[in-house]
Amino acid sequence: MTDTEALVFECELDAPPEKVWRALTIPEYLARWIKPDQNIDLAVVTSEENRSLTYSWREAGQGAIVGAEDSLVTFELTPTNDGGTWFRLTHEPVTVPSAANSNQTMLLVA
Protein backbone atom coordinates (compact mmCIF):
# COMPACT_ATOMS: atom_id res chain seq x y z
CA MET A 1 0.00 0.00 0.00
CA THR A 2 1.07 3.55 -0.52
CA ASP A 3 0.31 6.39 1.84
CA THR A 4 -2.89 7.21 -0.06
CA GLU A 5 -4.31 3.70 -0.36
CA ALA A 6 -6.80 2.18 2.04
CA LEU A 7 -8.69 -1.08 1.79
CA VAL A 8 -12.39 -0.70 2.58
CA PHE A 9 -14.86 -3.51 3.08
CA GLU A 10 -18.56 -2.93 3.78
CA CYS A 11 -21.46 -5.27 4.35
CA GLU A 12 -24.63 -5.74 6.37
CA LEU A 13 -24.44 -8.18 9.28
CA ASP A 14 -27.42 -10.02 10.73
CA ALA A 15 -26.52 -9.09 14.32
CA PRO A 16 -27.00 -5.95 16.40
CA PRO A 17 -24.02 -3.59 16.91
CA GLU A 18 -23.63 -4.76 20.52
CA LYS A 19 -23.00 -8.34 19.39
CA VAL A 20 -20.59 -7.26 16.65
CA TRP A 21 -18.82 -5.05 19.22
CA ARG A 22 -18.26 -8.07 21.47
CA ALA A 23 -16.77 -9.96 18.53
CA LEU A 24 -14.31 -7.10 18.00
CA THR A 25 -13.35 -6.54 21.64
CA ILE A 26 -13.40 -9.88 23.48
CA PRO A 27 -10.00 -11.47 22.76
CA GLU A 28 -11.32 -15.03 22.26
CA TYR A 29 -13.89 -13.82 19.71
CA LEU A 30 -11.48 -11.44 18.03
CA ALA A 31 -8.95 -14.24 17.58
CA ARG A 32 -11.56 -16.29 15.69
CA TRP A 33 -12.51 -13.36 13.52
CA ILE A 34 -9.44 -11.43 12.46
CA LYS A 35 -6.38 -12.70 14.27
CA PRO A 36 -5.65 -16.31 13.38
CA ASP A 37 -1.97 -15.45 12.98
CA GLN A 38 -0.17 -14.92 16.29
CA ASN A 39 2.41 -12.77 14.49
CA ILE A 40 0.12 -9.75 14.41
CA ASP A 41 0.31 -7.21 17.23
CA LEU A 42 -2.92 -5.30 17.82
CA ALA A 43 -3.45 -2.36 20.16
CA VAL A 44 -6.55 -0.22 20.62
CA VAL A 45 -6.04 3.34 19.39
CA THR A 46 -9.57 4.72 19.76
CA SER A 47 -12.96 3.32 20.62
CA GLU A 48 -16.54 4.44 20.94
CA GLU A 49 -18.55 1.56 22.36
CA ASN A 50 -20.84 -0.15 19.86
CA ARG A 51 -19.96 2.45 17.19
CA SER A 52 -16.30 2.50 16.16
CA LEU A 53 -13.02 0.90 17.07
CA THR A 54 -9.52 1.46 15.70
CA TYR A 55 -6.63 -0.92 16.23
CA SER A 56 -3.01 -0.34 15.32
CA TRP A 57 -1.85 -3.39 13.34
CA ARG A 58 1.75 -4.49 13.12
CA GLU A 59 3.30 -7.64 11.77
CA ALA A 60 5.60 -9.03 14.45
CA GLY A 61 7.66 -12.05 15.32
CA GLN A 62 10.31 -13.98 13.49
CA GLY A 63 8.42 -14.09 10.18
CA ALA A 64 7.76 -10.35 10.04
CA ILE A 65 8.56 -8.61 6.81
CA VAL A 66 11.47 -6.23 7.26
CA GLY A 67 10.29 -2.70 6.54
CA ALA A 68 6.61 -3.68 6.76
CA GLU A 69 4.47 -0.71 7.63
CA ASP A 70 2.23 -0.25 10.60
CA SER A 71 -1.37 0.25 9.73
CA LEU A 72 -4.67 1.18 11.30
CA VAL A 73 -7.74 -1.02 11.12
CA THR A 74 -10.99 0.82 11.84
CA PHE A 75 -14.35 -0.86 12.35
CA GLU A 76 -17.46 1.30 12.08
CA LEU A 77 -20.81 -0.10 13.22
CA THR A 78 -24.12 1.48 12.26
CA PRO A 79 -27.45 0.00 13.36
CA THR A 80 -29.82 -0.89 10.55
CA ASN A 81 -33.62 -0.56 10.64
CA ASP A 82 -34.05 -4.34 10.80
CA GLY A 83 -31.90 -4.79 13.93
CA GLY A 84 -28.67 -5.66 12.12
CA THR A 85 -25.44 -3.75 11.63
CA TRP A 86 -23.93 -1.95 8.67
CA PHE A 87 -20.27 -2.92 9.03
CA ARG A 88 -17.40 -0.92 7.53
CA LEU A 89 -13.77 -2.00 7.87
CA THR A 90 -10.99 0.34 6.73
CA HIS A 91 -7.38 -0.85 6.69
CA GLU A 92 -4.90 1.92 5.95
CA PRO A 93 -1.18 2.53 6.40
CA VAL A 94 -0.04 4.84 9.16
CA THR A 95 1.45 8.06 7.89
CA VAL A 96 3.43 10.57 9.90
CA PRO A 97 4.19 14.14 8.85
CA SER A 98 7.60 14.91 7.45
CA ALA A 99 9.86 17.57 8.85
CA ALA A 100 8.39 21.07 8.97
CA ASN A 101 10.53 22.13 6.00
CA SER A 102 9.08 19.43 3.75
CA ASN A 103 5.76 19.18 1.92
CA GLN A 104 5.86 15.39 1.82
CA THR A 105 4.30 12.72 4.02
CA MET A 106 6.33 9.69 5.05
CA LEU A 107 5.12 6.16 5.81
CA LEU A 108 5.91 4.94 9.30
CA VAL A 109 7.80 1.65 8.94
CA ALA A 110 9.02 -0.89 11.42
Rank of each mutant, 00 (worst) to 15 (best):
residue 49 E to D: 15
residue 100 A to Q: 00
residue 62 Q to P: 05
residue 82 D to Q: 12
residue 17 P to L: 03
residue 68 A to E: 10
residue 30 L to G: 03
residue 61 G to I: 05
residue 21 W to R: 00
residue 64 A to E: 05
residue 5 E to C: 10
residue 61 G to Y: 03
residue 105 T to G: 05
residue 62 Q to L: 12
residue 25 T to M: 08
residue 18 E to N: 14
residue 33 W to M: 12
residue 16 P to I: 04
residue 4 T to Y: 07
residue 91 H to C: 06
residue 18 E to Q: 06
residue 40 I to F: 05
residue 85 T to R: 00
residue 40 I to V: 07
residue 76 E to W: 01
residue 38 Q to R: 13
residue 28 E to D: 12
residue 14 D to Y: 07
residue 65 I to N: 08
residue 24 L to T: 01
residue 9 F to S: 11
residue 60 A to I: 03
residue 8 V to S: 12
residue 17 P to R: 02
residue 84 G to C: 08
residue 82 D to W: 12
residue 60 A to Q: 07
residue 95 T to P: 02
residue 42 L to R: 04
residue 13 L to K: 03
residue 109 V to Y: 04
residue 51 R to V: 07
residue 65 I to T: 13
residue 106 M to W: 06
residue 74 T to P: 01
residue 22 R to W: 12
residue 53 L to D: 00
residue 60 A to D: 08
residue 44 V to G: 03
residue 104 Q to A: 15
residue 3 D to F: 01
residue 59 E to G: 09
residue 4 T to Q: 12
residue 49 E to K: 08
residue 79 P to F: 08
residue 29 Y to W: 15
residue 1 M to K: 14
residue 61 G to S: 09
residue 95 T to F: 00
residue 67 G to D: 10
residue 88 R to L: 06
residue 13 L to H: 01
residue 62 Q to K: 14
residue 43 A to D: 07
residue 30 L to P: 03
residue 22 R to Q: 11
residue 80 T to F: 03
residue 4 T to L: 15
residue 62 Q to M: 08
residue 47 S to Y: 04
residue 79 P to A: 10
residue 45 V to N: 01
residue 50 N to T: 03
residue 11 C to Y: 11
residue 76 E to I: 07
residue 43 A to H: 15
residue 2 T to L: 14
residue 28 E to W: 11
residue 55 Y to W: 13
residue 58 R to M: 08
residue 91 H to I: 02
residue 15 A to W: 01
residue 38 Q to P: 10
residue 32 R to Y: 13
residue 16 P to F: 07
residue 60 A to Y: 04
residue 48 E to C: 15
residue 21 W to V: 02
residue 6 A to N: 10
residue 83 G to I: 08
residue 110 A to D: 15
residue 13 L to I: 04
residue 12 E to V: 14
residue 88 R to Y: 09
